[in-house]
Design a protein around this nucleic acid. Structure first.
Lengths: 229, 229, 229, 229
DNA sequence: AGATAAGCGAGACGGTACGTCCCGTCTTCTG
DNA sequence: CAGAAGACGGGACGTACCGTCTCGCTTATCT
């Protein structure tokens, strides 16, 4: 899946649409050039003009399939990060989360990190771009994260009625904050410590329903305390 | 204090420099137009050309005093920010932190929120701008936050050897994440729940030295459990 | 006759070639759309893209049969032109010429006039197009005009050795000039006055051989003076 | 005078307008490049992009002062033809007209001829361009031509009440026709013969008031007959 | 009847130039 | 000498068409 505009093909009950089909060569050349130039010049200096020229492609071909520079960058980034951010199932919430967070950390500290920075930076003044980021990058991982936490709940490591988004935003928020504001080191130790602390807090937490719904269930907390780490 | 260039006056051992002095009218008109247009169009669309035109000022006058659009925006934001983000001392870490975080939430949800967004967005591709943000907005609050947490430690609500930055980045990271990625509601309830959970985790945490120093001290955790909320 | 490329049929000694034959519907739709859009937007704004879209035809179908926009326009104009520009034989050079010139005037002032304008305009930078215009529109009339003038010479209204092209270019040049430069009204009165004046001049003219050959023959002039108008 | 947009200076009661004044260097470089490229590539292929590049000037500087390619071309051409098409005063209408028409012929047959062709060609689908041509090139000469003919009338070579435009359009129309339609040679002899014939006709003409108003005054004609050539 | 062949619509392709916007610099006159 | 005004060289924008191409489909003739 990609965020680029869909070829009409898919909309036409599986039949090929009329007209010359989209060029796979052009698509890949564009995405490749985007990643290449993005690393070289950064998001701000990156111009569609340069991408098209570098890919040996008409500017119109870029605009035909991607509505904006941002969408193109998100698409290129997502394709380059496809399958390295999945969650394992080790039988321990802490191990599963810490593992994935460290993989994510690896991406953020690699050259691709500056692409994430670019997307979120530009996304602050481009709602569509940010939505693309969420749709392509955030939500798919989030679905897996839900499963990971639910497994922990089943195992009794975490209390029932836990607000999963609360936990996940706290975990990843701690990473994003150091990544985006750059006021302190974003290290493996930091990530592990965040994970440990937040899961500890989640395990002892009772009032975990969305936005402070049913506030307590104090017993549950104590029951799970010992297991979480 | 401002990050705009200094009028030559200051460089000349206190004596007024020769020539016409800098126009205070122009300075304020520029800052006012910046805030106005920033709210209307966002940082990306904001052009120096438009600011100058709106302020009835020559473009060169803007360039004479501010090195970049970002510097101008930070300067303008500082103008509009009062001392409303201080920490109280209520005798409870949770109450103190929750209070300040809710005040901060108020700023983020006010029209000024979009300026924070603009600064952090543009800061992703402008190191100086981001450093300006940290120096003028982040660090002063952080100093106060340290004090608040230390008081909690003194009172026994939190363990000694707690990594204060870890706690604070986790608390505020959860806010920044929803603020910047906008995938979910950033509400008072959310902020309170984050605060509760993280402080709970911090209280039960032993391995709190910077970057995973001494890993345990399990007793400390249990001792403080009851008090933290 | 048309300047569009010929269907291969004609080249194959009368036998139909294999393959699907050229679509007469498409051909007419294209020519109709060309005339329609030409009147609406003028030659410069006219795009093959628009013609094809308006005719409900693929662009390639246009390019298959016409080598250029100009050729298409001349072809379309020929479609719309009937045999309404012939010369009468009334026994008077003035009456014959004035009649035909006024018929021509009628065409120029009708909606078809703008097509003539378009052809001559585009012809200034397209030699083939201009040659097409001369071959299909100018020369056939010119032949008839020669006959008309010769009859006048036979009748003694005009001198022998008259440079017929000189006279005709002067007559029609006066029309074309106001038609193309549009600096003054191109009216029936104007056309009649031009015709009267030029024929008056031609009648009194002796040095009429091509490009100023034998310069005089003054007697001839005076002899025909009274009759010409 | 030029057809380019006027610097606001002229509109401000002679006072200099505020702001940086228009660059004379840029203006001349643009006009020079226009003429140069026009000769090399023709009007159709001529692009503003290329003119700006060749002149070492920003595209916006061209658009700031000339509304269209055509206006720029007319301006450049007019400046290059400033002072060579004036009418002499030799005491003979024929000599004066024939002289100027031959000078005009010289321009049309020089490399600049293709510029005239380009202007009139493009003017067929660009009313403003054609108006520029009339304003800058046609009318100034026409004013002088009126004077030339009036002197002839004063001298008795031509009848009073002569429709001057009728005569001039017939004279120049004959030139323009061969120049634009290119069906026959446009030579000095041709021009002279046209001039002779038309003036002969004008001299014998009585019904010369605009658009065939008062139709006769037959005596006048004969009286001037002998003198005209 | 099937093979072969060309025309057809649709529309994507690599390009070129468009006319606009804004950049950051400059050049002028005014206060 | 700061400021307003605004022209300057430059560069990217997103659009419109160019003329070519690749599809699947249709319509014919020729086995």
């Amino acid at each position: 899946m990609t965020i680029s505009r869909q070829s009409p093909a898919k909309l036409n009950n599986g039949k090929r649409p009329p007209g010359r089909p989209r060029s796979e060569n052009a698509r890949q050349a564009i995405l490749r050039s985007t990643l290449k130039l993005l690393r070289k010049t950064g998001f701000e200096q990156l111009s569609i003009e340069a991408i098209a020229a570098n890919a040996g492609v008409g500017k119109a071909t870029v605009y035909r399939w991607w509505p904006s520079k941002g969408a193109l960058v998100v698409d290129a980034f997502a394709l380059s990060t496809e399958d390295e951010l999945h969650f394992p199932d080790s039988g321990s919430v802490y191990r599963d989360m810490a593992f994935q967070m460290n993989r994510f950390l690896g991406v953020l500290r690699s050259p691709r990190g500056c692409i994430v920075r670019a997307i979120l930076g530009a996304g602050q003044s481009d709602r569509e771009l940010l939505e693309e980021f969420r749709k392509r990058l955030l939500r798919p991982r989030r679905q897996e994260a839900y499963e990971t936490l639910r497994r922990g709940i089943e195992r009794g490591e975490l209390p029932r009625n836990l607000d999963l988004d609360l936990v996940l935003d706290t975990l990843y928020g701690a990473m994003y904050m150091r990544f985006l504001i750059r006021h302190d080191e974003l290290s493996e130790d930091y990530v592990s410590a965040v994970c440990r602390m937040v899961l500890q807090g989640a395990a002892h937490q009772a009032s975990s329903q969305r936005h402070g719904g049913a506030k307590t269930n104090g017993n549950a907390v104590r029951r799970h305390n010992a297991k979480v780490l």
